[in-house]
Design a protein around this nucleic acid. Structure first.
Length: 465
RNA sequence: GGCGGGUUGGCGGAGAGGUUACGCAGCGGAUUGCAAAUCCGUGUAGACCGGUUCGAUUCCGGUACCCGCCUCCA
């Protein structure tokens, strides 16, 4: 059996991965809050954990991996959009408008992530479908003394869980000392966090033992992981920004509600995304969504390739330069890989690189070597291991199908003549015109070959005859 | 203030306590009427200061700078 090593945030070390049950390797990744289009940063964990999903499927078998990624569809920004739409005269109840907004956003998310070549997870639960499970878990936490109700809220008591802060390396004392937030008066400890909060009439809410309200953010992941994966499972992933407080709170809730389980064995966090060296933000004017890039003509495979260039635990800088490089490389690879049939195993070197805490950059290096060696089959298999080269390769990378034989013959004839006369002006004129039209001109002793390039423009060939 | 991550050759970006990373660009060569494409060759890098060691870019400590989290943003 191949040995996979993964960096575990919990222990801050790279460890040999041993699944609790090799017949059912279980992974939970925090998914998006579906209030709008996914931005580029949202796509990074999707690609990172898609690569891990593919590796696990490769090693343990496609039928032996369960991957859960949730949709958070309880969120004030979703409510805002729904309220605005209602105010603008949209038909339907607020609840219906909220559902409509979530459905719409989830559809976009699927479209965009599909373009990146990400496999759909095994389960994609929506928080609103698990409110009952959340309420039950909160009731358990109150019963066992880990939570308390106060002024319509239910709060988790961090003092009841001695390991609180272990994942992120903080202590409750440190956090209180450095706290910048105002503390709600009903909290017993300033670090206590919300499990349930009351909803006013204009907000979505569910009936509960504590009145009409809605769940806090963290409880949904605990409840859905419990329902779909059990009290103990293998891997929990997400962006490093979720390490605290989100994941810390998930651990507290889950381990207190289910002391018989260990919750996640391995915690994995991807680093953040930068754009041209700076944090992506609306105020800096460098904020964009995945769809923005796709619309600008940057293919999903190119985005994926750029992501794979950087190890997931390092900050990744998105630059136009990288995207251009990625596209040029992929064109070469696709042309070669297209010559091979599906079904070739990936290179062992690449598998081993991936097994070493997802060294995707080393996989790309290996692909370069395979391409250099002209090994189309191994290249194809290796690209597919990391989610590149689906099917026959994308249309954008395929050479345009055009008949340039007339131009080719004409150029060859002119060249033959020029070889005799030593007057190449006519040949150069033809060549320049072809180059201007985006055609690559290759002349050798063997003859003339015309290859339409990425910027090929047939219109510019007119009048050439 | 607390916690965490980073700093590698022109650019991007890895691994490894001592032997070529790799890619892009550049340079030299082969090839070409000239090019393109292709192939071959080519880079005394490792923020700074100490320490451990026969030997450190790789381990340890410190300094500087950058970034993230601590505000339901992946």
């Amino acid at each position: 059996m191949t040995t996979i090593k993964l960096h575990n945030t919990k222990t801050r070390r790279k460890e040999v991965f041993t699944p609790l049950n090799p017949d059912n390797v279980r992974m939970y990744v925090c998914g998006p809050t579906v209030y709008d289009r996914a931005h580029l940063g949202n796509a990074r964990p999707v690609v990172v954990f898609d690569v891990l999903f593919r590796l696990l499927r490769h090693v343990y078998g496609p039928g032996h991996v369960t991957y859960v990624r949730n949709f958070t569809d309880v969120d004030d920004r979703i409510n805002e959009t729904a309220q605005k739409r209602r105010a603008a005269g949209a038909p339907g109840t607020l609840e219906e408008l909220i559902t409509e907004r979530s459905d719409e956003t989830i559809g976009w998310y699927h479209d965009d992530m599909d373009e990146l070549g990400a496999l759909r997870p095994t389960h994609e639960p929506r928080a609103t479908a698990y409110i009952g499970a959340m309420i039950a878990m909160i009731e358990d936490l109150i019963a066992s003394g880990h939570a308390y109700a106060a002024e319509g809220h239910v709060l988790f008591a961090v003092d009841s869980y001695s390991n609180y802060g272990a994942l992120s390396g903080r202590t409750v004392e440190d956090m209180i000392a450095g706290a910048r937030v105002e503390v709600a008066p009903y909290k017993r400890n300033p670090m206590d966090f919300v499990l349930w909060k009351p909803s006013s009439d204009d907000l979505p809410g569910w009936d509960s033992p504590w009145g009409r309200g809605r769940p806090g953010w963290h409880i949904e992941c605990s409840a859905m992981a419990q329902e779909l994966l059990g009290a103990s499972f293998d891997i929990h992933g997400g962006g490093i920004d979720l390490q605290f407080p989100h994941h810390e709170n998930e651990i507290a809730q889950s381990c207190c509600a289910h002391p018989e389980g260990g919750f996640a064995s391995v915690w994995m966090h991807n680093e953040m995304l930068l754009v041209e060296g700076r944090k992506m933000s609306k105020s800096l004017g460098n904020f964009f969504t995945v769809r923005d890039l796709l619309d600008q003509g940057v293919p999903g495979e190119v985005i994926r390739y750029v992501f794979l260039m950087t190890h997931y635990r390092k900050p990744m800088d998105w630059t136009a330069e990288k995207a251009a490089q990625a596209e040029a490389t992929l064109r070469k690879w696709y042309a070669l890989a297209a010559q091979a049939p599906d079904g070739t195993a990936p290179s062992q070197t690449a598998i081993e690189a991936l097994c070493d805490d997802l060294n995707t950059h080393a996989v790309l290096s290996e692909c370069h070597q395979l391409a250099l060696a002209g090994d189309a089959a191994a290249l194809r298999g290796t690209m597919q291991l990391v989610g590149l080269m689906q099917a026959e390769g994308p249309a954008w990378a395929a050479a345009p199908v055009v008949d340039l034989s007339a131009q080719s013959d004409r150029l060859a004839a002119a060249r033959d003549t020029a070889m005799q006369t030593k007057d190449f002006t006519q040949v150069d004129r033809l060549k320049a015109a072809l180059l201007a039209a985006g055609v690559e001109v290759r002349m050798s002793k063997a003859g003339v070959e015309l290859v339409p390039g990425p910027d090929f423009d047939p219109a510019r060939l007119e009048g050439l005859e």
